[in-house]
Simulated scan of single mutants.
Amino acid sequence: MYYAQLLFPDFSLIVIGYLLCRHTALNRPVWQVVEGLVYYFLFPVLLFQSIVRTPLDLQAASGLMGAGLALGITGIALAYALPHVPLLGRWIDRRDHAASAQVAFRFNSFIGLALAERLLGAQGLQLIAVLIGVCVPLFNVGAVWPMTRHAQRGFMGEIVRNPLIIATASGLVANLLGFSIPEFLAPTVTRIGAASIALGLMAAGAGMQFQSLARGKLLGASVLTIRHLLSPVIAWLLARAFRLGAAETTILLTFAALPTASSCYVLAARMGYNGPYVAGLVTLSTALGVASLPLALAVLGRW
Rank of each mutant, 00 (worst) to 15 (best):
L56V: 04
V38K: 11
L125Q: 10
R270S: 15
R106A: 00
S50N: 08
G280P: 00
P187A: 00
I111A: 06
L88N: 05
G66L: 08
R53M: 15
P163W: 07
T249F: 14
L78P: 03
I159F: 07
S285G: 15
A60R: 12
A114M: 00
L244A: 08
G200F: 01
T24C: 03
I132C: 05
T148S: 08
E158F: 12
A203F: 03
T283P: 09
T54H: 15
S50M: 07
W91Q: 11
I159Q: 10
G157D: 14
P163D: 14
A257V: 11
G72I: 03
W91D: 10
R95C: 06
V34H: 04
R215T: 07
G75Q: 11
E117C: 01
Y39R: 01
V290L: 15
L115H: 01
R53C: 04
A186T: 10
R22H: 06
F8V: 12
Q126A: 09
W91S: 08
H97I: 04
A174G: 02
A167T: 01
A214Q: 11
A257P: 01
G171V: 03
V299K: 07
R90N: 08
G301A: 09
L87H: 12
R153G: 13
L258D: 06
A169F: 12
V266S: 14
A60Y: 10
P232H: 04
M147P: 13
G72Q: 04
G133K: 03
T283G: 13
I73G: 02
S231V: 02
A81L: 10
F43N: 02
T24M: 01
E248P: 02
L87P: 12
A61K: 04
V282G: 13
E158S: 15
V290I: 15
R22F: 00
H84T: 13
I16A: 09
A214D: 14
L297A: 10
L42Y: 02
L120N: 15
R53P: 00
L69T: 02
D93P: 10
F155C: 11
P55A: 10
A116Q: 06
E158Q: 09
G112I: 03
S292N: 09
F48M: 09
L238C: 14
V34C: 07
I132S: 10
M147F: 08
L37Q: 14
A151K: 06
E248K: 13
L237P: 04
L238H: 09
N27Q: 12
A77M: 11
L20G: 00
G301Q: 01
W91I: 11
L88R: 12
G301R: 09
A143P: 08
Y273H: 13
Q59T: 15
A4F: 15
S109A: 05
V30M: 13
L229F: 07
